[in-house]
Design a binder for these strands. Structure first.
Length: 424
RNA sequence: GGAAAGUUGGCAGAGUGGUCGAAUGCGGCGGUCUUGAAAACCGUUGAUCUUCACGGGUCCGGGGGUUCGAAUCCCUCACUUUCCGCCA
C-alpha cells in the first residue's frame, strides 16, 4: 500500500511511475484518492471537535454532581445527549470514508523504481547478466520427465493417483536429491548470515492480507475455509509476517532470515507445455530469503541477495542469466524485481528459478513494519525477498544439463549432500 | 472436544464507573558522582490521527452495547494458560 502523504506530496511523479506499470487511469484514480482523503480529514476534524466538547461536558457533569449542584448537572447532561446522535452519524460517515479510501489504496500497485524498464510483457525484460556455458548434449539426450522415468526418481503418475496433477512423488535417489538440495541451500544461506526459520505452512487471513496475497483475485491460494486458513504459496508470507506490527531497532538492521518450506499454488489458468514435468507444480519446495532493511541501505542489500543466488547457481554449475523485469511483468507489490533463469538444455529453454525483489515500503505499510532511526523517529522499513532457490526447475536443469551416458553427474558442491558423484 | 481462568505500556504487574494514557518495579535514555566502570541518587521514557503551531482526537486483545461519562458493567468473536479427553 502506498503512503497517503507521499501521494499527496508527489502527485505527478506517482502518476508517471504508475504509467511504467501500465496502471490504467492513474491520473483519475490519484485525484479521487486525494479528494477522498480531503473529505476524510474534514470529517475527522469535525468529529474530533465534537468529541472534545462531549468530553468537556462529561467532566463538568461529574464535577457538578460531586458538588451537589443537581439541576445544573442535569442541564449539562441533556446537552451531552444532543451531541450524541450527531457524533454517531459523523463517526459512521468517517468510518465509511476511511473504508473507501483504503479500498482505493489497496487497488493501486507499488511504484516501480527508476531503473525499471518500460514494457508490457516478458519480452521487454532486460537481460542484465549472463554466465555459464550452455552445454551441448550427446545424441539421444532426454528431457527431464523422461529422465525421471528412466531412473525412477520422480513419479508424476503416482502423484496423479494420490492427489492430482502437479503433486509428484519423489522416490529413492530422487527424494535423496531433494533433501540434498534443501540442505545445500539452507547451509549456504546460514553461512551467508541468514537466520534459519521453520514457519507454519498455513497462515491466517491477516497474514495473507499483509503480504498482499489477499485479496486473491486470481484464486492462487489453497484455502481451508473451515478454519479460515490458507496454504502458503511461499515462505515469504509467514516469515515476513513475523515482523508484522513491530518496530525494529536500527542497530539490528538488516534483519535477514531464510526458510525452507513447501509451497502450494493453485496455478489457475496455466496450461500447455509450460506445465510439463517439473516446470510448474501445485506443491513444490523452496528455500526463501527475506530481509528487512532501512530505506538508505535496502538497495545495497538487494545486491547482497542477488550475489547469494548467483553463487548458488555457480556452485551447481548451471548456466544462468539475470533479468530486470519490465513494468508490465512485475508483481503488483514489487518496486524492482530481478529474475534468475537457468538454461535447461534438453528442453532448450530458460526456466525461472528465483525472483529477487525490493518492495520498499509497500509491504511494510500494510504490515506496519517500522524501525526507529538514529533520531528516534519511527518510519517504515523496506522489505526484500528472493528464492534461494526453488527446487523443481533446478532439478529439471540439473537432470537435463548434467546427463551422461552413465547417469546424472552431480556437481561437486552437492556431492557431500547427495553422497555420490553420479545418479544412476 | 469438555471445564475454568485470563488478555493492560519494551517486560512484569496494579487499577472494578468520573480528575486513568493509566500506580509500582524492571529495562531503556540523559545526568550527578567516578581516572573509567559498577553501585547509589536525580530526571526522563508508548503508539497513532489531525494542525504551520498552540492544541485537540483515538488506542488498556478485536467488534458491538449500556451510560452524561467505560481499562472498569453487558454481549460477541479471537487468542492464551491450566485441568480433563484424544493423539504424532
Amino acid at each position: 500500500m502506498l503512503q497517503l502523504g507521499y501521494i499527496r506530496e508527489n502527485r505527478d511523479l506517482v502518476i508517471e511511475r504508475l504509467g511504467v506499470k501500465n496502471f490504467k487511469d492513474a491520473d483519475k484514480i490519484i485525484s479521487q484518492v486525494i479528494e477522498k482523503d480531503n473529505k476524510r480529514r474534514g470529517l475527522q476534524m469535525e468529529l474530533d471537535n465534537l468529541k472534545a466538547e462531549a468530553n468537556r461536558l462529561a467532566k463538568e457533569v461529574g464535577m457538578l454532581f460531586k458538588e451537589g449542584r443537581k439541576e445544573e448537572a442535569e442541564q449539562s447532561k441533556s446537552k451531552s445527549v444532543d451531541l450524541k446522535s450527531r457524533e454517531k452519524q459523523l463517526g459512521a460517515e468517517l468510518a465509511e470514508t476511511e473504508r473507501e479510501l483504503k479500498e482505493m489504496l489497496l487497488s493501486i500497485p507499488n511504484l516501480p523504481n527508476a531503473q525499471v524498464p518500460r514494457g508490457t510483457s516478458a519480452k521487454d525484460n532486460e537481460i542484465v547478466f549472463q554466465q555459464g556455458e550452455i552445454p551441448s548434449l550427446y545424441e539421444g539426450a532426454l528431457e527431464h520427465w523422461d529422465l525421471c522415468a528412466r531412473y525412477d526418481i520422480i513419479d508424476f503418475e503416482l502423484g496423479n493417483k494420490i492427489t492430482g496433477a502437479g503433486f509428484p512423488v519423489y522416490k529413492g535417489k530422487g527424494a535423496r536429491l531433494q533433501r540434498a538440495l534443501i540442505n545445500f541451500f539452507l547451509d549456504n544461506a546460514v553461512r551467508a548470515g541468514f537466520r534459519e526459520i521453520q514457519p507454519p505452512l498455513m497462515v491466517n487471513e491477516a497474514s495473507a492480507m499483509a503480504t498482499g496475497q489477499l485479496p486473491d483475485k486470481e484464486g492462487q491460494m489453497y484455502a481451508i475455509p473451515l478454519d479460515g486458513f490458507y496454504m502458503i504459496p511461499t515462505a515469504e508470507v509467514p516469515v515476513t509476517n513475523i515482523f508484522r506490527d513491530t518496530i525494529q531497532k536500527m542497530e539490528d538492521m538488516p534483519v535477514c532470515c531464510c526458510a525452507y518450506s513447501q509451497c502450494f499454488r493453485r496455478e489457475a489458468g496455466s496450461y500447455g507445455k509450460d506445465v510439463r514435468g517439473l516446470n510448474r507444480l501445485h506443491q513444490f519446495d523452496k528455500v526463501e530469503i527475506v530481509c528487512i532493511d532501512t530505506p538508505e541501505h535496502s538497495y545495497e542489500q538487494l545486491e547482497v541477495m542477488k550475489s547469494h543466488v548467483a553463487d548458488l547457481l555457480r556452485q551447481l554449475e548451471l548456466p544462468f542469466r539475470v533479468l530486470r523485469l519490465c513494468g508490465g511483468d512485475m508483481s503488483f507489490t514489487s518496486a524492482i524485481t530481478y529474475d534468475f533463469e537457468v538454461y535447461s538444455a534438453a528442453q532448450k529453454r530458460w526456466l525461472e528459478v528465483s525472483s529477487v525483489s525490493n518492495f520498499e515500503t509497500y509491504q511494510a505499510n500494510r504490515l506496519k513494519l517500522r524501525y526507529k532511526d538514529e533520531k528516534g523517529k519511527i518510519q517504515l522499513a523496506h522489505t526484500l525477498n528472493g528464492s534461494a532457490l526453488a527446487l523443481p526447475r533446478i532439478v529439471a536443469a540439473l537432470l537435463e544439463n548434467h546427463q551422461t551416458i552413465e547417469g546424472i553427474r552431480i556437481p561437486k558442491a552437492l556431492q557431500p549432500y547427495f553422497g555420490s558423484e553420479i545418479l544412476d
